[in-house]
Design a protein around this nucleic acid. Structure first.
Length: 914
DNA sequence: CTTGTACCTG
DNA sequence: CAGGTACAAG
């Protein structure tokens, strides 16, 4: 069957080539049978795991697909929910939105007053009372007014002094709040306002003046026709313009949109500035609080564990660096630095010893996320300040009359009315002209809220996970099984991609507690990093928030391009460009040569099993047309061999060190004898990925301030609805929308997290890494390995296109180096070897694994070598003059696809690609 | 008509 | 890397 197929295939092709001389360019492989290489049953020359019985394994496959999807993260989610529910029941009448916080706080058993304070503060923030806090805090900052501190001192958390002050302030009566706020505003104007053009306040009747000022702020915020430029992201439409339009009309005054009163601008600026600053301070405080919580939880849960890392003393040293930036801001009687400076202080990511237990590591992780956020905010503020200054110069003509007109339109609030509430209310109804500022505020609010809740969720989840995991190592075995099944399914998928997914017949993995390990393969000795996958999305938000659009400012990042494309009415495919180096990678690369493996990568790397020597020898080099047909015959024996081959998770090869010849000598010979790798080593299979290990080791605190992470994950989420809907939705979107969509629609995007249809740069990286295993993945396989993507035609095509591009690059390189070898007089193709230090290899690695996220599987090197030899032979024989001479090579190479390691499906994997 | 691929171009 | 095209097969 195979041979006949070959003949017809080629015969047809050549016939058509002869017929159609019209097309000049040589079409090497157009119109190959659909997925002809990989979809042919048992086409692969590899031992066939599945034999011929597709149905049976198909069932397994589809079942395990869900298995893999839900994976270990499933149960924890449930547990979290249960925990939260229980805690809520216990907590009684507390607001619903604070349930999670309750759970968190009470995790350690005893909620001291400090945590109660934190609790209230969180609730305050969530409920929008932050304005009060902001203003009051500002009051503290400017006036060092400690009179109302009250019982804040009884808090037992010394690190949260600033927060406590803030909280204490928040506790004062409303009347006092009004005064405090007014004071704060005054102080703001006098102390922190760089521009002198402020209406001098009259000392005679301070009350009235202050009220008037407040009114000015209010009206100014409403009326300011700020240009739609936000943080340098040029002319993006702003957040929810329709909503603002509809509501704003009621407030638009006749004249107010014509000119911008400078003073109003300034006041507005100050108000927002203050708000932003305070929110950031609060965020920092929350971080701090979080650290404390982590520490407490750590202590409470560590009883039974060995307490190597964290003697209670180290807590102090660990907390202090975090608290210090906050204090530096909260410290009264200090000249207030500019807002951006303050933010930059906040941005300092807490150093401190690396903690290698999950919680503390998580703390670092999240703190970094928060730091990223702060960095984002800082950037915005810088730009905002710049813009404000410019506008101030432009709008030199201050129109007092206008501001007075505003006063008429908006009566001063009754005394009992909470000014801050009114502020917030008005803020939600500002005219579209002020939407840039407004959008910022909204985004900040949303983002902070979302980040906080996610932080907390994450903590709880981690905690629960740790608890559970310790008592239940059996999960490892389940994961192992899962992995194996996936491998099988992958092979199967290539052969019969048409399988329809079958509903998962039984419940997901979480094995019963106390279930001993089924087999001793996967020992619980996991590096901390690999906590059971978090419930989807728990960490997604922080991750995505790092890629906040604020980040992408002027630098025309490629991602910017994608975003702008989305904005344009014309529907375009998301351009997902990768390749920007992450901070961590920078340090890694700086430490070592470009190809050098990072220490992390030297860690046991499970699934990158070297190609086994007993591999069915590569097809007859000189006869590309006559492909081995034997593999077409289902061979049960091969099934066995596959199970126990190095590819199988159950295989345990020699356990000595594994050496990839990845060193990079100073002057690497492009090609040289390949040290046929000493016995292929296979490490005990784990789900641990080098990237994960790397993350665990480098997880400390990359300096996000220097180099921004690629702004991935920001592509418009509108892809959810499929392509056709995109164009319609795009118009109404604005620059803020991506963030909003990610942070506001947590239930949809984050908590369910899987199922954005947008391929992010992270996905691109992942796809590139996958290329090490598969050159010709079917779309079914691809879909399987991107479970977080809701596929439609567009993104499927995009993903397929990626691999097409990968191949293109790959073959170009191959041809290039093959020709070079020919020109250099290499005679025998067998003399060509590709080792880790080959230039070719380096080029490829740079392309597909630029940041050395993973250790390149030696199988890939083998494939490269084979490809190179094929090209070499073809060129040597002059076959390259023939039409479509590459086709045979492609065909050979297409059979060298390997199963992609299962951990590529892990949601964590994507995260670890940064 | 859809899918998959190669090829070329920007 | 994406757009676009030309193919060739289901």
């Amino acid at each position: 069957m195979m041979s006949s197929e070959e003949e017809t295939e080629f015969g047809l092709y050549t016939d058509k080539l002869l017929k159609k001389s019209k097309r000049t360019r040589q079409r090497v492989d157009a119109g190959e049978p659909r997925n002809s290489y990989s979809s042919i049953p048992n086409f692969s020359s590899r031992p066939s795991f599945l034999g011929g019985s597709n149905n049976l394994y198909g069932a397994i496959f589809t079942q395990q697909q869900h298995f893999g999807l839900f994976g270990p993260g499933f149960a924890p989610t449930k547990m979290l929910n249960e925990l939260l529910g229980r805690q809520k029941a216990e907590s009684g009448a507390d607001g619903e939105e604070v349930t999670k916080f309750d759970a968190v706080i009470r995790c350690d058993g005893s909620p001291p007053s400090g945590e109660q304070l934190a609790h209230h503060m969180l609730r305050d923030i969530l409920q929008g009372r932050k304005h009060e806090l902001l203003v009051n805090h500002e009051h503290i900052l400017n006036n060092n007014n400690n009179e109302t501190k009250g019982d804040a001192e009884r808090g037992d958390v010394e690190a949260a002094v600033a927060m406590q002050e803030c909280l204490a302030e928040a506790g004062v009566g409303e009347r006092q709040q009004v005064d405090l706020m007014e004071d704060a505003l005054n102080g703001m104007e006098t102390d922190s306002l760089p521009s002198p053009k402020v209406e001098p306040r009259s000392p005679a009747k301070p009350e009235d003046a202050k009220k008037a000022r407040v009114e000015n702020i209010v009206s100014g915020m409403r009326s300011s026709p700020a240009p739609p430029q936000v943080n340098g992201c040029k002319k993006r439409k702003l957040y929810q313009p329709q909503q603002h339009d509809s509501t704003a009309d009621r407030y638009i005054d006749d004249e107010e949109e014509e000119t911008e009163p400078l003073r109003q601008k300034q006041v507005e600026k100050n108000a927002l500035k203050t708000q932003l600053r305070t929110m950031q301070e609060q965020l920092a405080e929350m971080q701090q609080k979080y650290v404390q919580l982590c520490t407490r939880m750590e202590q409470s849960s560590e009883d039974s564990r060995e307490v190597e890392e964290i003697p209670s003393d180290s807590e102090q040293s660990k907390r202090s660096p975090i608290a210090s930036p906050v204090r530096s801001i909260a410290t009264p009687n200090q000249p207030q630095p500019t807002l951006s400076q303050q933010v930059s202080k906040l941005k300092i990511s807490p150093p401190g010893p690396p903690f290698h237990n999950g919680l503390l590591h998580e703390h670092h992780h999240l703190s970094n996320a928060a730091a990223m956020y702060l960095g984002v905010s800082q950037k915005f503020l810088l730009e905002q300040e710049a813009r404000m200054a410019k506008e101030a110069a432009v709008a030199a003509a201050v129109s007092e009359a206008q501001s007075q007109a505003h006063h008429q339109h908006h009566q001063p609030p009754s005394k009992t009315e909470n000014i801050t509430e009114r502020l917030s209310m008005i803020k939600s109804n500002v005219t579209p002209t002020g939407t840039d500022l407004e959008g910022l505020a909204d985004v900040l609010k949303t983002e902070i809220t979302a980040s906080l809740s996610n932080l907390i969720d994450s903590i709880v989840t981690r905690f629960v996970h740790q608890r559970k995991f310790r008592s239940n190592e059996g999960t490892a075995a389940a994961e192992q099984l899962n992995k194996d099944l996936i491998m099988a399914s992958q092979l199967l998928d290539r052969k019969s991609p048409k399988q329809k997914p079958i509903e998962r017949p039984h419940a997901p993995p979480p094995p019963p507690p106390n279930n001993p390990m089924v087999n001793g393969h996967d020992l619980p000795v996991r590096p901390p990093m690999f906590q059971p996958p978090k419930p989807p999305g728990i960490n997604q938000v922080p991750l995505y928030s790092m890629n906040h659009p604020f980040c992408v400012t002027k630098q025309e990042s490629e991602q910017n391009e994608a975003l702008s494309l989305v904005v344009t009415p014309k529907k375009k495919r998301h351009k997902v460009t990768d390749t920007r180096i992450t901070p961590r990678t920078v340090s890694r690369i700086l430490g070592q040569d470009g190809m050098g493996m990072s220490p992390a990568s030297m860690e046991p790397t499970p699934c990158t099993s070297p190609r086994p020597p007993p591999y069915p020898q590569p097809p007859p080099p000189m006869l590309p047309v006559s492909l081995p047909t034997s593999v077409a015959i289902p061979n049960p024996g091969l099934h066995e061999s596959q199970v126990f081959s190095p590819y199988s998770p159950f295989f345990h090869g020699p356990s000595h060190g594994h050496h990839m010849a990845m060193q990079t000598p100073s002057s690497p010979p492009r090609m040289h004898k390949m040290e046929r790798e000493s016995p292929p080593i296979h490490h005990p299979p784990t789900l641990l990925h080098p990237a994960l290990l790397a993350a665990a080791q480098h997880g400390g605190s990359p300096d996000y301030g220097h180099i921004r992470a690629p702004s991935g994950g920001l592509n418009m989420d509108n892809g959810d609805r499929n392509s056709d809907c995109n164009s319609g939705g795009d118009i109404s979107y604005d620059g803020m929308q991506p963030t909003i969509s990610f942070l506001c629609r947590i239930p949809e995007v984050s908590l369910t997290s899987e199922h954005s249809s947008t391929l992010t740069p992270m996905h691109l990286r992942k796809a590139k890494l996958m290329f090490f295993w598969v050159r010709y993945p079917s779309s079914a396989v691809l879909k399987m390995y991107f479970p977080d993507i809701k596929f439609n035609k567009n993104n499927t095509a995009q993903l397929v296109k990626w691999f097409s591009n990968f191949r293109e690059f790959y073959y170009i390189q191959m041809e290039k180096y093959a020709r070079q070898a020919v020109s250099e007089g290499v005679k025998n193709a067998d003399d060509l070897h590709v080792s880790g230090d080959s230039e070719l290899y380096r080029v490829l690695n740079l392309h597909y694994n630029r940041n050395n996220h993973i250790e390149v599987p030696s199988s890939f090197r083998f494939v490269v070598e084979q490809t190179l030899r094929e090209f070499f032979k073809a060129i040597q024989e002059g076959r390259d003059a023939e039409q479509s001479w590459k086709k045979s090579i492609y065909k050979i190479i297409s059979r060298l696809d390997d199963p992609v390691p299962e951990y590529f499906k892990s949601p964590n994997f994507l995260e670890q690609l940064e």
